[in-house]
Design a protein around this nucleic acid. Structure first.
Length: 108
DNA sequence: GCGCTGACAAAAA
DNA sequence: TTTTTTGCCAGCG
């Protein structure tokens, strides 16, 4: 199934459960493009739907790069905290505790 | 078809 | 430890 790169990204992002987060690099690797982490973010830019929890997709630092929503850069923290994600005093997400590993079981 | 941009990541200084 | 540079590859002009 030669679907487009972004399509695979969307499918994976939609599978992220509440209370967990995923990293761009992790997604890129899981879909078969270990070096295309940037394109994951580029694809997220088009993703503005309820089925696309882009706020659950963070970088290796544990936070969104461009403030996520234009005008409300803090909404990401509110959403994640509301779903049960813990934040470190550094302002970053505890990836060691909330990094979703469910996709590894899917074996796509 | 060609070149530039970019929601990242890993390596080097 | 943090900051800077390079590579990466899909999207857009």
């Amino acid at each position: 199934m030669a679907k487009t790169f972004s399509s695979k990204v969307y499918a994976l992002v939609m599978r992220i459960p509440a209370g967990y987060v995923y990293t761009y690099g992790q997604i890129a690797r899981d879909i078969g493009h270990p070096r295309a982490a940037r394109q994951v973010g580029t694809a997220m830019r088009f993703a503005n739907d309820e089925r696309m929890p882009c706020h659950r997709v963070v970088n290796k630092q544990g936070m969104l790069s461009p403030a996520y929503v234009f005008g409300n850069p803090h909404i990401q923290r509110q959403l994640l905290e509301q779903e049960g994600v813990a934040f470190l005093p550094d302002g970053r997400i505890d990836l060691n505790a909330h990094l979703w590993d469910g996709a590894l079981h899917e074996g796509m």
